[in-house]
Amino acid sequence: MEVRTIKVFTTVDNINLHTQVVDMSMTYGQQFGPTYLDGADVTKIKPHNSHEGKTFYVLPNDDTLRVEAFEYYHTTDPSFLGRYMSALNHTKKWKYPQVNGLTSIKWADNNCYLATALLTLQQIELKFNPPALQDAYYRARAGEAANFCALILAYCNKTVGELGDVRETMSYLFQHANLDSCKRVLNVVCKTCGQQQTTLKGVEAVMYMGTLSYEQFKKGVQIPCTCGKQATKYLVQQESPFVMMSAPPAQYELKHGTFTCASEYTGNYQCGHYKHITSKETLYCIDGALLTKSSEYKGPITDVFYKENSYTTTIK
């Protein structure tokens, strides 16, 4: 009895394709271990004539594949690729409408935090270190965002349907971005203890939790000093293409032309909904596939993004 075979390709990165001759009487799992086709788990399936010449994702289970996976995804987590594939199996079914010149995501599976993050990423200057993220990001900007969303979920250790947080998501993504040249110098002034300067680099240099107003941050924000008295913390120097200011959701007025974009969060910790506000020729609110415009805006804002380049204080 002759062994019926077909020729397929296996890959971990969709760049390096490895030619395989597979036995049609055995499952993919018996031949390769966990195997995925377009995100779908085909591990328990036997090869079919229609699979001839198709590319299958496999887990990096030998040295060659491990090197290829690390170079593309910059992670050695053995569960990463499987999590990416199972997320992709959902995100490829989502709709990605162009809204006001940006790629958004039609609401499904509690994905409003991903839509808000995706919209924000198209408006701030950011370059990702893992080629996987950078490639998928370019495709997302062009309207094909399924891979990018699935990668975000995998890097953030999230599953489809789980509630997510924009600030946490951005923080994970910033860790995989090139923020080497970003720098922030802060000064804390206390009447009792004097003053202390701190220099922050990388992710810490672009994120701040405690106030939404970048102007206020430049002037000074009140913080408790270690001595128990009130101290003032203010920005001395900022070198970065953008800054992200966050605070627990509270009524906040966004003035046209003073910011790049913002995240609105309605609801409580267990259950809520994100919308995205962007400042173009007027203010726009993007909620999944829905767009509304207004000249002014007041609502429960939790993150505001500002364009920056270089700032030095005039406070002496």
Results as ranks from 00 to 15, higher is better:
W94N: 04
D63E: 10
I223F: 14
T120A: 15
Q195A: 14
K158N: 04
R66K: 15
E308I: 14
D62N: 14
G288L: 03
K201I: 08
L88Q: 00
G210T: 01
P78C: 13
G267P: 00
T43K: 09
G39M: 09
A132K: 07
D287R: 00
T55F: 06
C190T: 06
K95F: 11
Q238E: 04
E239S: 08
A154E: 03
L290I: 14
K233P: 01
E52L: 12
N129E: 10
K54V: 12
N14G: 13
V188S: 04
F242R: 02
D63A: 11
S25G: 14
H273V: 06
I223H: 12
N157H: 07
G161I: 03
Y172D: 11
L114I: 14
L235S: 03
Q270M: 12
G82K: 15
F174Y: 07
L37H: 14
T19L: 12
D38K: 10
L121V: 11
L163T: 08
G267N: 02
N110Q: 03
H74E: 09
L151T: 03
F9Y: 13
E125M: 00
V188Y: 08
L81T: 08
L200V: 10
Y269G: 09
V304S: 04
K298I: 12
T5A: 13
D303Q: 05
L59H: 15
L133G: 04
Y36V: 04
I152Y: 01
T282L: 09
Y265A: 01
D13L: 07
M207K: 06
T64S: 13
E253S: 09
I223V: 15
S79C: 14
N129C: 08
N309T: 15
F148N: 07
D135G: 08
L65V: 09
D180F: 01
L186V: 15
Q98P: 01
S295H: 12
Y306L: 02
T27E: 12
G267C: 04
N16L: 12
H273M: 02
P249Y: 00
F174Q: 02
N89C: 14
C261W: 02
F32L: 14
C285Y: 00
A154S: 08
D135K: 09
S171E: 10
V221M: 08
I124F: 06
D77Q: 08
H51C: 05
V221I: 15
K298H: 11
T302V: 07
A142D: 15
Y297A: 02
Y57N: 08
N187K: 12
F174I: 00
T5N: 15
T302Y: 00
E296W: 11
N309A: 15
T282K: 08
G82E: 15
A142F: 10
K44M: 12
A108V: 09
L153K: 07
A231S: 05
I45D: 15
P131E: 00
Q175L: 07
H90R: 14
